[in-house]
Design a protein around this nucleic acid. Sequence first.
RNA 1: GCCGGCGUAGCUCAACUGGUAGAGCAGCGCACUUGUAAUGCGCAGGUUGGGGGUUCAAGUCCCUCCGUCGGCUCCA
Length: 642
Amino acid sequence: MAESGSIEITFDDGGIVEVPAGKTPLEALEQAGKSAGGAVIAEVAGESVELNRPLQVGGSLRLLDFSEPRAREAYRHTASHVMAQAVKRLFPKARLAIGPSIEDGFYYDISLERSLTPEDLPLIEEEMDRIIEADLPVVRRELPRADAIALFRERGESYKVELLEAIEEDGVTVYEQGEFTDLCRGPHLASTGRLKAFKLLSIAGAYWRGDEKREMLQRIYGTAFDSAEDLDKHLEMRQETERRDHRRLGAELELFSIREEVGPGLVIYHPRGAVLRTVIEDFLKREHARRGYDLVISPHIMKSDVWRTSGHMQMEYPMYFFEIEGQAYGIKPMNCPAHIYIYKSKTRGHNELPIRFFELGTVYRHERSGVLHGLLRVRGFTQDDAHIFCTMEQAEKEINDALTFAFEAQRAFGFTEFKIALSTRPEHFVGTEDDMERATATLKKALEDQGLEYFVDEGEGVFYGPKIDVKLTDALGRLWQGPTIQFDFNLPRRFEMTYVGEDNREHSPVMIHRTVLGSIERYIGLLIEHYAGAFPLWLAPVQVEILPIADRHVEYAEEVAERLSGNGLRVEVNRERETTGNKIRKAWRMKVPYMVIVGDQEVEGGNVSVRSLSGRDERGVETEQFIAELADEIASRSSTEA
RNA sequence: GCCGGCGUAGCUCAACUGGUAGAGCAGCGCACUUGUAAUGCGCAGGUUGGGGGUUCAAGUCCCUCCGUCGGCUCCA
């Protein structure tokens, strides 16, 4: 036991040191003859603290370096303070709002008299360099809330005052570095000089507290790393993301276009994109049929009464409405009502359940102009939409099967890493609490039966029912919205759906919405970025391009092409009078998986020379052999069984 | 919808502080008949996103609308 007035610090290696209370982790380390190394912050008795914070209580001390998420946050949070300080120096009238660290970086929301432009960023960076150069100590100070309010009010920092007024505790902390003071919980780096590498990335608008009714602030995004190499690596990664951008590749690979003349958010599929989409849709139709879904088709427009019944009009869903011969119509934003009308086309008995309707349904939604983004956010898109109508008792098996289906399909497209969220009943909901709880329990049980890891998003379900959301991880480690499975206790009621039970009485069926890919448009965008445009063979719009060496080889090239396409392969012959090198280059740029080169040797030998995107380069391959190999490759990637 | 950037030929980009639009690639034509990531020469292609204004003169300055990009917000 330490004597009063001193505290005991235990290190990772078991070493113990006793220091007077009020000493800092750095001082304790020094006394123990240890170095802080690359530590960003420390953890003492379970609490994250800066290396220069005077300690009042002892405990085990652990150093956290940049590889630890908490340390990374602190590091970037300090970077955000340095940026704010620089902005305040350049624009003394600037008022600061909030400036947290985020995944991969940080930002600060600031209110300024004039708008920042990209040219301002280097100036701010220079000022930040000066602050880092000066190596200002970052000092933590505790003070009563009222004093903090007075302090920030005096400095005209009205946003900080507003934040403080919302804080319940009496005591708050501020961090100071040089002339700069910010309200902050910390922890931080011990001094500004410890920032090694940072970069300001962009400027954007952001509403104060994310509320569009409040004022618009200017947000500066940046990132920081503890070495220049890591920063460079991160910036390269951003460039790689840009290279993979589906909007760019979509145009280069001639997959689709979105044109001002046609309308924002409306996708035009070019031949190659249409092939890709057809392959995906055929796959979906086959898989749904195999799993007991009935394919249905519904019109793109339906009378407004339908949307009144469904509730979409009342909740002011962003739809398109118009009139035909005095009748109000709306373009469908969802496929559910049509499926419900199919259900209601005759009296349903319990022996018929479960009923599963599947549709590749194209829907239109009036998205606000600012949110449109390539294929990922559009105004017209096609969902692989299905609705399952069953009894509560059957729901468990249905959910299980739907989950299995979703994961098998995702694996077929090359995704193997998932993050699953179970969203539970929100505060306001329709239906009975009992139904809601049973549905949630059913979802939970299905996830657990399948041994799937998931996290619970408490209260994040939709008002009409709980749901499972699956997020996919792509080749760059980014997360994308994937399959969803949701209960719906709202629509069966609104549309007065029933079935006749064993007891010969009418009951209300359970309705489950579920998608496997979500939106086909978005999914194609995801596939493009995931594969950087180099699709697996089964998805590639053109699978083989045949390159004759000279004109006299075209005839043979076409014979080969015919044999390949006769075996179901998608083939093109390049008849241009170009050098072979240039033909290869063009095929390469279009990311065609296989190039087949034919010249005198091949004509004579009756074979082909094969070159592939994946690096294969082989001459004199027997055509039959080649066809068989491609057939195997296609089968292996498209199979959901294996 | 809101804040800010951007909009020049099919694509990528030039054109000093306002002085009357230019290149590469792609396309077309001619020559070349080619063996593994760009053959050569030539031609054509733009009401500088639309509209309005300032000016002797506007791609360049101002207003407005549209689109687009980065965000906010929202969602498939």
